[in-house]
């Protein structure tokens, strides 16, 4: 079991012929993900050569691709200027999970795209996220498959490489994962911590959750309140950015302390007040998860 995606997920790649899209399509297929098609306007009718001689059909539009393949998920690798429109196209075509990897999407574009997708019942993950990986099931996005291993831990994070670090540490310590989700570093994201915590709570295979947050916004504080009120499973937290100065954007567009809001200290306090144990450094996550599972 897992959250949001499994072996039965049928995936379309929006922007399959681009540099990143084609590279990661091969990686996803190699992991075992069912990539049923790709979309690049103007290249409909061509095929994409996957690993092991796999041929992936390319379509001009999401509408055609969904009709021909019965896909229920999509992953977006198109440039920032077209990403919001790609999300809306996927939602309009009836896709229920839209994973937007693209970094640098204008925020005003996303205000419209999120509203549009919500109205059509599509879940958006991201943008500016590494995607998600259901261990032994499907990988949607760019998370490196080989660092993960099967086990009882759910991982949710706003970051990319920091997630890899945590997953790598867990795997080395013999603590495998169900699903690892990167929700994205942008200020406006489609799937937040609470959505993931709630899904992990319902997933019978997940026994504990690692939640990796960072400065900016109040998503972690709300997630802490949710964990306290609505979760029976233990949550281990980590917050990056204790040394970040206020008012400065730390790489991620969403990682900025505005006024007194969004500091690491405030978040750590909120997590601890809700009974979540917080790791002081990434390496401590392992011990805390072990203790939580004991």
């Amino acid at each position: 079991m897992a959250i949001f995606t499994d072996k039965s997920t049928k995936l379309l790649v929006q922007g399959i012929t681009g540099r990143d899209g084609s590279f990661h399509t091969r990686e996803m297929i190699a992991y075992g993900t069912q990539v049923v098609g790709g979309v690049t306007p103007g290249k409909g009718g061509q095929t994409f050569d996957g690993p092991g001689g796999r041929k992936v059909p390319i379509f001009n539009s999401m509408d055609e691709a969904v009709a021909a393949t019965g896909a229920n998920a999509s992953v977006i690798f198109v440039p920032p200027a077209f990403a919001a429109s790609a999300i809306m196209e996927a939602a309009d075509a009836g896709i229920s999970l839209v994973v937007a990897i693209t970094e640098g999407v204008p925020v005003l574009d996303m205000t419209r795209a999120h509203a549009f997708a919500r109205d059509r019942g599509a879940r958006v993950l991201g943008p500016n996220c590494p995607g998600l990986l259901t261990v032994g099931g499907a990988k949607i996005g760019i998370l490196p498959g080989r660092i993960a291993s099967p086990g009882p831990v759910g991982v949710v994070s706003r970051s990319g490489t920091l997630t890899y670090e945590a997953v790598h540490l867990l795997t080395r310590a013999g603590l495998g994962q169900t699903t690892c989700v990167g929700i994205g570093g942008d200020p406006l994201i489609g799937t937040n911590f609470i959505d993931c915590l709630s899904a992990f709570e319902k997933d019978p295979a997940t026994e504990a959750v690692v939640m990796i947050g960072e400065i900016g916004g109040t998503d972690e504080q709300q997630a802490a309140a949710f964990a306290k009120s609505s979760m029976s499973k233990p949550v281990v937290g980590f917050i990056a950015g204790q040394t970040a100065p206020p008012g400065r954007r730390m790489g991620h567009a969403g990682a900025i302390i505005s006024g007194a809001e969004g500091t690491a200290l405030e978040k750590v306090k909120a997590l601890e007040a809700s009974g979540i144990t917080v790791a002081k450094r990434p390496a401590d996550i392992v011990g805390l998860v072990k203790a939580a599972l004991a």
Partner: peptide, 17 residues
């Protein structure tokens, strides 16, 4: 010098740690 914003912040924090 780090790859990834989250890992970069975590690295700074670890320097302080």
């Amino acid at each position: 010098c780090v790859n990834g914003a989250g890992l970069a912040m975590a690295t700074m924090d670890l320097v302080k740690y």
